[in-house]
Structure formats: structure tokens, C-alpha cells
Design a binder for these strands. Sequence first.
DNA 1: GTAAGATGCCGAA
DNA 2: TCGGCCTCTTACA
Length: 290
Amino acid sequence: MVGLPDLLIAPFHHVREAELPEGHVIHRLAGAIEDAFAGEEVTVTSPQGRFAVEAAHLNGSRLRGAQAWGKHLLIDFAAEGAHLVHIHLGLIGRFTVGPITPVHGQVRLRIEDAVSSADLRGPQWCRLLSDEEWEAVLSTVGSDPIRPDADPEKAWRAIHRSTRAIGVLLMDQSITAGVGNIYRAEVLFRHRIDPMTPGNRLAHATWQAIWEDLVVLMRRGVATGRIDTVRPEHTPEAMGRPPRLDRHGGEVYVYRRDGQPCLVCGTTVRRTNLAGRHLFWCPRCQRRHR
DNA sequence: GTAAGATGCCGAA
DNA sequence: TCGGCCTCTTACA
């Protein structure tokens, strides 16, 4: 493992920016929830009403902690019976943590104390689970490059025996957890891998390099709250080009850059649909099959 | 394997 | 005002 910065202790107290729900966002949220509420008795409500019974069960109990596994967020309350709130933001869910604000919009879940409030809107899932139910969910979650306890060899075994494309396998949350459409496209570009390469054609050393890169990139995302994947020589400053201005923010090689010239070779970046998602890649740079 | 649907928000019209 | 989306599930070929 090369030069892993110690980023998991970054300050998170306020997480308010519109963030992209890939794994790094969920880890940031877990950190923000812990910074704001861990160890405290909190008020739990469901202003929108769709989590009202569960919120009432938790209201006034102590928030023990929050953790992320891939794109899953788990908040642990010291309450009787089912006491784990399992949240998945899906595509459009938003969770904001910061100083107390008035409730606005469809707030499914609000956690608050005297100074902070956390509001969850539009989640794919927000449900109350027992320990056993959570264990069942966790058993389906793959290796998360952000977690220190992740096992990249477990992911490798699934990749190595699969004929599916590596561009699909990286997005399979039961194999690599937390990798989304941006990290998928970018890590394959950085290693010059053809996204259509079957998993069983990939060399073990290539997988190890991809994994170590995901660890670095995704932990950087946890620290900064954005996805930046370009190497120093390809930054806007180094290349004298304008910075990316869309709401995705970070500097990337291929994600949503279809029709524009590749930052490395100038070839037009392409887009296609792979397993129902847009895949972006440079057909010249990405020819490796091992 | 492909398509539609869920939900909040942004930015293109 | 409306389409697309950084995700995932369900239904069907």
C-alpha cells in the first residue's frame, strides 16, 4: 500500500454541499453524524410522516454512532428492540448535517440536539432494523475501499471467476462497495483498462493496482467532499485549461466528458450504455485487457 | 440481458 | 417547466 494519507479523521461537522452519493459521501455523512451527535440523547422525528412510528420509537434515545459500508449508512441508537436506522440515498436522496435550520420540504427523518440538525430527504431506503436484519444486509455488501477492514482478495475472487466486463463488476455493490459511475470510469482510465475486459481476463496485479488506487481516490473524496482523479500534470493549472464548472465539481479524465478531447491523448472521449448506466472512456488510452 | 419506476434537485429550455 | 441523474429494485424476455 503506497502512501495512504490518514484521511479518515478529517473534520465533518457540517456536510451541506450537494454531494454525489457514491461511497465517499456516505462515509462523510457517517463522520458528520458522529461529530454532531455521538454519545448524546437526540430528538428523532419524521416531519414528512413516512418514518413517524420508527422515529417515535427512537426519540430521546442516545445516538451511539454512525458508520458506512459502501453506499449503506447505519445509525445506531441505544433503544430497545430494533435500534439500527439503515439508510440508502439511492440516486436522489439527500442528507444534510449542520446548525439547526427550519424544516423545509419532505423531511423523512430529522435528528437534532440543541445546536445541530440532520435532515434526510428522498432516500431510497430509511428503515429500522434489528441486529439480525442488519447482519443479513451486511452479508451482501462487497469490499469497500474506504474501510480499513475491507478485503480486496474477496472482491478479486468474484472478479477472477466472472466473464462479465470489469466495467460492470466494479459497479456491482456485492463485489466492490461504494464505487459509483464516476470512480468506475476514472479508475479504469487511470489504469488504461478497456472497460469491456472480462473479469476473468484481468491479471491479479492489475486488480491490486486498481484497488490501491480506489483506496487513495475514495479516501481523498472522503476528506475533500469531491471526486478529483486527475494526476498533477493534468490539473487545470498544469495544463492551462479552464476548471470544470458543472455541479459535479471535481477534476476528472472522462466522466461526462464525452465529445471532448482526452486530457492525455486528445482523442474524443466516448460514451456508451453499459448495464443501464452511462460509461465514459477514451478508446485510445484504454486498450489494456490485462 | 433490458426497461421502467421511485424520489429531490439542478440546470437547460 | 421539464428532462436527466451520481442508485437500486422489480418485472419481464
